[in-house]
Amino acid sequence: MDMKIGQTMITFVHDGEVRGDPQSFFPGSDWTAHADLLDDTGQAVANVGSFLIRTDAHVILVDLGLGPGGALLDNLAALGTSPADVDLVLLTHLHRDHVGWAGAFPRARHLVERREWDFWSACPGGVGPDPERVLPALAGDLGFLDELPAGIRAIPTPGHTPGHTSFLITDPGTDERVLVLGDLLHTRAQFDELAWQFRSDDDPARARRQRAGVLTRFRDGRTVLAGGHFAGDAFEPPAPRPAVRGASAL
């Protein structure tokens, strides 16, 4: 799964997947209108992986998947990218399924929102980064989002976690752009079902407001929305601003 905007190539690199009861993922959700997003047994499917961004100046990963046991490194190798090629890792947040390969990229500087780092440094474990394996690996070459390279802008989207961040990717050769959502949306069903709460949302009401704001701002006819947990293709083509159920309650 890849796309090119100008001279920037963006590829979703699969690490693994998670399947489960959709109402466990989204408590109280009704999937009647979204049965096409479930597998043949009625389970929800969530991909897990990283977005590889290749420019003339950088080889970048956004998020680091599940970690050892996953397929990320093998799939990067199939694309001709070795761990030593990656010079920058951007982290949307520090849940364990987004930081699993921390320490695998020896040249990479790791950038994360400062509040996100401060929160999980004080409250490690659980759904957050492993305090013995992941946190020290990240801390080894850690920076914050004031160091982003040209062509990438941080879009604050807190709610799923305290410092959750989405990343807007642009290229001077085109008006088209890509917004890597992180866990702002976990499924395409949330384009319609803004009120659905994911089970690990830290602040569900804030997360809903962020979803509404992002869809209002970026479903603008020129922005591709990239969801690392979307089943199937990670890239949602540009679309005009829709009338979405649940927006009036936000």
Rank of each mutant, 00 (worst) to 15 (best):
T55V: 15
L91E: 07
F167H: 01
V214M: 09
A108V: 01
W196V: 01
W120Y: 02
R107D: 14
T165Q: 10
D202Y: 07
A35Q: 10
R177Y: 06
T32K: 03
I152K: 08
A46K: 11
I155P: 07
H58N: 15
A231W: 01
M3H: 13
V99L: 08
R133M: 10
V89G: 04
L38R: 01
S24Y: 11
R217T: 15
T174W: 05
H160W: 09
A137G: 11
S50M: 02
T165H: 02
I10V: 15
T11R: 13
A239N: 08
T32H: 06
T187G: 06
R219H: 05
E17P: 07
L135R: 01
V127R: 06
L37N: 07
Q197W: 07
D146M: 05
R241A: 09
T32G: 11
C123F: 14
A226R: 02
I60H: 12
D87W: 14
S50D: 04
G70T: 09
P158G: 05
L38P: 09
F235P: 08
L38S: 03
Q210H: 06
T165Y: 08
G182W: 03
R206S: 04
L215P: 05
G100F: 10
P240Q: 13
L37M: 07
Q23V: 13
L111E: 00
D36Q: 11
P129H: 14
F12L: 06
V99P: 02
I169N: 05
A78S: 14
P68E: 04
G125N: 09
R188C: 13
G163P: 02
L181M: 12
D201M: 07
L250K: 01
H93K: 04
P83E: 06
A234N: 01
V127C: 12
P131K: 00
S166W: 10
Q190I: 07
Q210A: 15
L64T: 04
M1K: 11
S121V: 14
L73C: 09
R107W: 01
D141S: 10
D56T: 13
V13E: 12
W120S: 00
P172K: 05
A35T: 15
R208E: 07
T8N: 05
A226K: 00
P106R: 06
L66R: 11
E236C: 03
A239V: 03
I152A: 09
A71Q: 07
D175W: 09
R177P: 08
L148F: 11
H229D: 08
T216M: 09
P238I: 09
D85W: 10
G182H: 12
W196I: 09
F105D: 03
L37W: 07
S24E: 13
L90F: 05
A137D: 02
L111D: 00
I10K: 00
I53A: 06
G128F: 07
R217E: 14
D2N: 10
L194E: 03
A249T: 11
P22I: 01
T187F: 10
P27V: 09
H98P: 06
A139T: 12
F198D: 01
A207W: 02
D175V: 06
A78T: 13
P27L: 12
L88D: 04
D74G: 03
A189C: 13
P162V: 13
S50R: 00
I10E: 04
D141N: 13
V127T: 05
K4C: 03
H14M: 10
F235Q: 11
P242L: 11
T174A: 14
L91S: 06
F191N: 13
A154S: 13
